[in-house]
Write a protein that binds this DNA or RNA. Structure first.
Lengths: 208, 208
DNA sequence: CAAGACCCTAATCATTTGATTAGATTCAGA
DNA sequence: TCTGAATCTAATCAAATGATTAGGGTCTTG
């Protein structure tokens, strides 16, 4: 027997929920929270606009659900990469995790776009974002950098600065992809350019 | 005598125009174009909302005027710095111009915020922004990097990648200042942190 | 199969937004 | 001082936006 409050969901509901979340992530990343309209999200998901309020109580909650999914993916990517590298020395591990972060930034430019969009506004959504998702990543990243500096593998730069250098240098080419295409005439999302960018960033950080 | 079409402007008009432009720059940077409301801009400028349509024909034109002013300031900063360094060797010149760019990013975080905001949307405003303001800066910057690579002063990284590493690593700490304050507990806009960041970025780029 | 919960849509509401209009006020110049 | 253009405000409009309501259709389950 099931508790009285438990809802019996149908598979179709989960499928449309996912389509809405994917569309929401794209639109929120492209237009920021205020600029994103629920009608635009609904159109991209192929549903009517009131359906968003059926699956999610508000635009705000939809945003949170979409961002949760994005960070879940990021954490899974990094965790599984680190898992496959158990036993590898810390310098190599760090290089490869930085590469993994750059690959993720290329396949999910929404990540950095949403962070910058919310950070500019500096409202309650940013508080939620930092406390729930960014801080854990910051802690583990700066701890890693601190060890690398201590071991002399990278220059003596304060970990907080290394963090913002990495989160800036890594994703910016993909965040500014439309500009990059026009300026440099290259597609930042092509495999060669992604590889070249990962090479460039890791070289600057780790090769001396 | 003056031509019939010439308007006789009063000083007060220029003053309020400037106040509106300054407020518009802040609000556009904080909330992106769509999220910025003309009422909010007017309130920060201390005027009524219809006055924006008196001085500027539309929200779009107001945005262009504000962005023009911002890039004028950037170009003046870099030009006057380069001017004061005439005769200095290229490596030192480059280091100091990179520092100048970081100082400007700290004093005007709106620059990178507006670029990223428009680049995400990828609309006609981005075309205007790239063609009118970004391309000249891109050309001179990548040319500089190409010479530095050729002379062996920095690692052999394609200039386009160096450009996005610099425009990412330099401003991101200031663009994400609210996050940085919460995560690292430091104020990115304090003189010490700005200096430390300029040291960090130039060290990674130029010290080998 | 019948009932009820679940999934979804059409119509609509109250607010907010950029822009316009009409008019008040201020200032320069004759 | 007087006139007219320049500057600015109050009132308002049409469009767009997030959300709600009422109801139709569908699947499960007893």
């Amino acid at each position: 027997m099931q508790t009285p409050t438990e809802r019996v969901k149908r598979p179709s509901a989960d499928a449309t929920r996912e389509r809405i979340l994917a569309a929401a992530l794209d639109v929120f990343a492209e237009r920021s929270f205020d600029g994103a309209t629920t009608r635009d999200i609904a159109a991209r998901a192929g549903v009517t606009q009131p359906l968003l309020n059926y699956h999610f109580s508000s635009k705000d909650e939809l945003w949170r659900a979409a961002v949760d999914g994005l960070f879940d993916e990021l954490n899974r990517s990094l965790a599984s990469r680190a898992d496959g590298l158990r036993g590898v020395d810390e310098l190599t591990m760090s290089r490869l995790l930085v590469r993994e972060f750059i690959y993720f930034s290329a396949s999910h430019p929404q990540l950095h776009r949403i962070i910058t969009g919310e950070c500019k506004a500096d409202g309650p959504r940013m508080d939620w974002l930092v406390d729930r998702h960014v801080r854990p990543l910051y802690e583990v990243t700066t701890a890693m950098f601190a060890r690398l500096v201590e071991q002399g593998h990278i220059p003596a730069i304060p970990p907080a600065h290394l963090y913002y250098i990495l989160t800036g240098a890594g994703p910016t080419m993909f965040v500014l992809a439309p500009e990059c295409r026009r300026l440099a005439g290259i597609d930042p999302f092509s495999d060669e350019v992604i590889e070249a960018h990962a090479d460039s960033v890791t070289a600057l950080l780790f090769d001396r």
